[in-house]
Amino acid sequence: MNAISARGLTKTYRSPRKAQGLLASLRSLWHREHTVITAVSELDLELAPGETVGFLGPNGAGKTTTLKMLAGLIEPTAGTVRVLGYDSTQRPPELLRRLTLVMGNKQQLLWDLPPSETFELNRALYDVDRARFARIRDELVDLLALGSVIDRPARNLSLGERMKCELAAGLIHEPEVLFLDEPTIGLDVSMQVAVRQFIADWSRRHGATVLLTSHYMDDIAALCSRVVVIDGGRLRYDGALTALAERYAPERAVRIRLARPPVEPVGPLAVVGQELVGQVPAAAVPELLARVMATGEVLEVSVEPQPLEDALRRLFGGAA
């Protein structure tokens, strides 16, 4: 049985539409026009237990709406959702005890109290017995290096500390399914790495199923071997991350430093000072390198895959 299974998932909204200006505002008092917006359209999605999947798409693609439908927060207009075998639209308590949704831009911590109090509140709400609670809390404090942080009022914590506590608060009931909506948003690089490492450790230890959205491709590359990409509410890609990169960013950034400045370009490699630099199709790299190495003047070679962002830009029809 899949941990998450969605079929034909669709969500449409009626959104008020108003022309610009005071007159239009007055008119909208008695005559309001609406536009029907399709946030998600006939999305099929399956996640096996223990799988960590990156959920990608540009802003407004429908990622968060999908996560909220999967978590049972908003009702789909059409389609079916089953999480751990339950119909999540009914929000059965048995399911809610086994899933979590952590949102990087919304907080559940009690603002005026230390995070330890939010943990205690969640312990009661999720009916976690005290021994199990102590074990999970200690594990979270250890993995997230929370230490004394959990005893200071949430309002006095830095953004990074708060985000780590948000994650801990969302996991105190040891859920099997994690919906993580941009958990590293706004964090500095070192904090992003810490949160990323934590998610990897936690999902490995607990065998959790994770559906993760992030605009930081480093998060996705570090955590997900499979990605699902949506745009305009429709599924655009579902498969291995490596295959996505090969399909939409098949070139390599090649940089070769030579003992002497080269006299002419080599294939697609241009001359830049003492280096040959250029984008080369992956399949052509070995032959090209062999040609340059044959000159016997190579000091240093660097071959880098294109950033994932480039693959996504091409997928979304942006700059190639």
């Binding site: 927060l73 308590p93 005890r97 979590t100 559940q108």
Partner: peptide
């Protein structure tokens, strides 16, 4: 308005009560 009802609805307790 701000969507923080999300966290209430995720609890395994009757949301009206919470």
């Amino acid at each position: 308005r701000f969507g923080t009802l999300d966290y209430v609805l995720l609890r395994p307790v009757d949301p009206q009560l919470l």
